[in-house]
Write a protein that binds this DNA or RNA. Structure first.
Lengths: 115, 115
DNA sequence: TCATTATATAAGCACATGCTTATATACGCA
DNA sequence: TGCGTATATAAGCATGTGCTTATATAATGA
């Protein structure tokens, strides 16, 4: 994977700052595999629900992720239309796979799959 | 360029946070081309000398850059031994070339070349 | 309609960050 | 040795960040 379009420095700095948080970085790495809902992230990170919500909001405000309601759950996914999606994916690419976190959830019966 | 070794999430977050500042990100992109001394950065960024010094210190403390004195000037360079150098270079790779900043300095006769 | 569950948002707080000003240190040169 | 230039460092301050607690909103199901 090779980013084609150059990413302006200002934009890159903003993106990297967003990614420069362990929770958000991990969230994105997970979302690169599968969509997730808020309560799954709460389980995964052993964090409070507002804390998770606030991280997701930052990612959403910046355009990196999208949300879509499914019943009572709000699912988040990487925004495929995001202008710098390729860049973000490249940055994520070097990180270790986080799929095991979802597997763990599954084993605990805490994975939300609906509709 | 493709990062071979996976970068642990914690480390990646710390690195990306460091890069998530426009001044430091630009510094690194410049250093990817050529070594620079503090006073050149001061010119380039129209910033105060302590401010530049403090950014460079963060990069040095994290291991991304090295310093070496040449006469009265302190030159900074990318640390070739840095464990995650490939990762950093990959992140920088997508950014527009900043060589023109050095060219500008040169034209103003403000480029420091010594020894 | 009401209780439950999932989520978002607001307010407050502790701590981090990046700048400024002031000062110390180091080198080169007369 | 003393001055000018380059750099580092310390202290102070305004602002940003990420958490917490408290509360509001939304959907589900009895």
């Amino acid at each position: 994977m090779k980013v084609k379009k150059a990413v302006e420095l200002d934009k890159a700095a903003v993106i990297l700052k967003l990614l420069g948080d362990k929770t958000r970085l991990t969230m994105l790495k997970i979302l690169a595999c599968e969509d997730c809902c808020v309560c799954e992230f709460v389980e995964i990170f052993h964090a409070s629900q507002p804390s998770i919500s606030q991280h997701l909001r930052k990612l959403k405000d910046a355009g990196l992720v999208r949300e879509s309601r499914k019943g009572q759950w709000m699912f988040y996914s990487l925004n495929k239309e995001y202008e710098y999606k390729d860049y973000v994916l490249e940055v994520l690419d070097a990180l270790p796979d986080q799929r095991y976190r979802l597997t763990e959830l599954e084993e605990q019966g805490k994975r939300i799959s609906c509709c």
